[in-house]
Amino acid sequence: MWFAVAKFVAVLVASYLLNQVMARRNKTSTPEAATEDDLSVPQPDEGTPQCVFFGDCWTADWCVLCYGNYRYEPIKK
C-alpha cells in the first residue's frame, strides 16, 4: 500500500516539475491599456448631409456616426 502512495507522490512531483520547466514565459511585461486615441473610427467630413434612420435599415452609406460607449478607464469593483 505504501508503495502505491509513494509512486503516486513521485509522479505528482515529477509532473509538477516538468510542467514548470516546459511552461511558456512572457518575455515582455503586461501590455498597456488602450486609450481613446488608439481607436480608428471613420468620421464624415464636416457639413456632409447625413441620413437619419429609425429602426433597422440597410444603407449604401459607408459612414459610421456612432460606435457606442467605449470606456478606457478601468472598471472599479
Rank of each mutant, 00 (worst) to 15 (best):
N26L: 08
T28H: 15
M22R: 14
F54K: 11
V13A: 01
F3R: 14
A60C: 07
W62V: 13
L65A: 03
L12K: 05
E36H: 10
K77P: 02
Q43H: 14
A60N: 08
T48G: 00
C51A: 12
T35S: 15
R71I: 13
W58L: 15
S15L: 15
P31Q: 04
F54D: 07
F3M: 03
Q50E: 11
D45C: 03
F3N: 05
K7S: 14
N69E: 02
L12S: 07
Y16W: 14
D61Q: 04
T28M: 13
N69L: 02
K27A: 09
E32L: 12
P42K: 02
S15W: 04
A23C: 08
P74H: 11
A60P: 01
A6G: 10
V64Q: 01
A33W: 00
T48C: 04
E32Q: 07
P74G: 13
L39W: 11
G55L: 04
V41I: 15
A34K: 15
Y67W: 06
A14W: 02
T59N: 00
V9Q: 00
T48F: 00
S15D: 03
K7N: 13
F53E: 05
L39E: 15
R24Y: 15
E73K: 13
G55M: 05
T35Q: 13
A14H: 03
W58A: 06
A23E: 11
A6Q: 05
D56C: 02
D38T: 09
S29E: 09
D37H: 10
E36F: 14
S40W: 11
L12M: 12
L12N: 07
V5N: 05
C63A: 10
L12W: 04
A34M: 15
K76Q: 14
G47I: 09
C66W: 04
N19V: 06
W62M: 03
K7D: 14
R71P: 10
P49A: 09
A10R: 04
N69D: 13
T35G: 12
P44W: 00
A10H: 04
A23Y: 12
A6H: 07
E46W: 05
L18R: 03
V21C: 06
F8A: 12
V64S: 00
F54E: 10
L39D: 10
L65K: 00
A14C: 11
W58T: 04
W62D: 12
L12Q: 04
D56Y: 01
F53L: 06
Y72V: 10
F3L: 14
K77G: 04
S29C: 05
G55I: 07
T59W: 01
P74E: 12
K7L: 13
L18E: 04
W2K: 04
V21R: 00
C51K: 11
R24E: 12
L39V: 07
T30A: 15
P31M: 10
R25M: 09
A33S: 11
S40R: 14
A4Q: 15
A4Y: 07
F8V: 10
M22D: 02
V5L: 09
Q50N: 09
D38K: 08
M22E: 11
